[in-house]
């Protein structure tokens, strides 16, 4: 199994694009500028993410999830 790598090791945060409203809260609070948000496209820039969870806490619609096992490639 191949996992996506974060800056600090294994990436544990995942954004579920199907449920996302592309509002930008997570981008605004991300200390690492690790989230790319286009018109209707969003993804984590893995190598910048530190799994700090701030994006999860500020998501108004619960589309960002934390998975201790890591995020599969």
């Amino acid at each position: 199994m191949e996992y996506r790598q974060a800056k600090t090791g294994r990436l544990m945060i995942d954004i579920l694009p199907d449920k996302c409203d592309f509002c930008g809260c997570c981008v605004g609070v991300c200390p690492e500028d690790a989230i790319e948000l286009k018109e209707a496209e969003i993804f984590i820039i893995d190598k910048r993410c530190t799994n700090c969870s701030k994006c999860i806490w500020s998501c108004p619609v619960e589309v960002i999830v934390f998975n201790k096992e890591g995020v599969l490639r």
Binding site: C25, V29, C30, W57
Partner: peptide
């Protein structure tokens, strides 16, 4: 410019 998560009012 990144905002402290406590200052972000997340709205629906």
């Amino acid at each position: 410019t990144h905002i402290d998560f406590r200052d972000m009012e997340s709205c629906t």
